[in-house]
Structure formats: C-alpha cells, structure tokens
Design a protein around this nucleic acid. Sequence first.
DNA 1: AAGAAAACCAACCGCTATCCT
DNA 2: CAGGATAGCGGTTGGTTTTCT
Length: 247
Amino acid sequence: MGRLPCCEKVGLKKGPWTLEEDQKLLAYIEEHGHGSWRALPAKAGLERCGKSCRLRWTNYLRPDIKRGKFSLQEEQTIIQLHALLGNRWSAIATHLPKRTDNEIKNHWNTHLKKRLAKMGLDPLTHKPTPEPISTTNLSHAAQWEIARLQAEARLAHGSKLSPAQPGPSASPGPHEPCMDDVPRAWQGTCAETASLGSPTSTMSSLENTLRIPVDGFTESLLENSDKGYWNNLFNMVNSSTYDSPLF
DNA sequence: AAGAAAACCAACCGCTATCCT
DNA sequence: CAGGATAGCGGTTGGTTTTCT
C-alpha cells in the first residue's frame, strides 16, 4: 500500500514565499492557531500544501525565533551537543530555544563541519582523521569525542536510546560496561582532572541538560571512570568559559 | 567590470513516529 | 490490534548572494 501524498500536488504553489503569503499565514495562525496543518491552507487562503505552511511557520515566521549570526556560545553548544547527540538537530535545537533545527543544521553544514575538518576531526564521527590517536596532541574536546563515540557504539548495541525523551522511564539496556571502551587518551585526560562532584548529580545534570537518558552503561562509566571528567563535560555544555580550540 | 566559484539558506522530499479511529 | 492520517525529522536541492580571480 503506497503512502498518500500529504496534499494534492496539482495547482499548489512551490518555491519561495511571498510577503503576502507570509502575512496570510501569520494572520491566520495568530487568530486561530495552526490547528490541522492539512486543513490550514484552504482556511487561510493559501495555495500551498500544509506541510509547506508548517515549515514556513516553524522555520521562519514563528515569533520566538532569533535570526542572524550565531554567537560563539551558541556555536560551542552546537558542537558539543553534536558530539553527544549526532545529527539529531531537533534535540540539539531544544538547547538553543530561539534557533530552529533547520537553522542549526544549515549552520553546522556550512560552518562548523568545516572547522572540525580543519582540526583534523571527521565531522561525521568526530574521530581524528589521518593520524593515530595521540594523547599529547589531541585536544580535550577531541579526546572527549572519541570516547563518546566508542561509548555510544556500545550504547547502540545494548539499548535503544529514546531521543530527547528524558526521565526515569528510560530503562537501562542489558549491556556490560567495560572500561576498555574508554580510550587511553581519555583516561590520560581524566587523570589530570580533579573530581568535582558526586556522580549522581552529574548524571541527573546530564539527563536534564542533554535530555538523553543516562542509562546503565553511562552510569557505570560515571562510577568507574573519573567523575571529574564527566563534570567537566557537563560544565562544558553549560558554560561559555570552555576554552575550545575551535575558536 | 565581468565571469566563475564558493557560500549561504529557504524550501522540498521522503521516511519514521505518533496519534486516532 | 490494524491501518490510515498527520506531524516531525533529517538529508538534500537549488536559487540567490557574496567573494575571488
């Protein structure tokens, strides 16, 4: 059974929105709310498909959208969250409330990805590209990213992450924690960082801030590896003072 | 000044998740 | 529970603008 098109393609306008269309959409939503997107175009007098209207609203017309250049702090947050969450733009966007996932995605693809590549990091995986891992040469962020990837690989293997759905309902997967997952590079770094807080508070902070479940494996990492590193990670995500080598 | 190349970003497409009957 | 409808998401495209030669 084939999927029905979201709307009749015939006779519907495509391409850039005009000022008039924007005003119609804005006026309608301000008065009635969007309701069903499918029904909205006809009610608002627009010759667009509902999906197009929804996208225009969420990515452009919504009054709570901040437009223009990304601040340094915003860029840091995107890079750090991307290292943790990957290309889950909507999840990343929840930490930049006035930015849309589309805008973040575009900014990543046009700017940040290239900066990572210049650093010698694969923007897809955050892994260093050509040279073998060296504890002394790798930046703190790069080391974190390597470790994150390896841990994530195990997470994916053992349990299904529920994206952007925090909370106690996230059940731990049946995977065996293993410190071999944490590369030597990381451990070297960890050895230098002081323990800054309780692992429990770090875990809940990570859950609340990153909106990802801290499951059994991660929890075990927190317990078994250097807790200070996780606190640093948490601080990096929250703080603008992280001295990223990217900037 | 003009053409080419690169950068930018709005919008589209198709897939998946969730809701509803 | 099944199946259809809808919303949301991420990848990609293509038109426009800016920069370079």
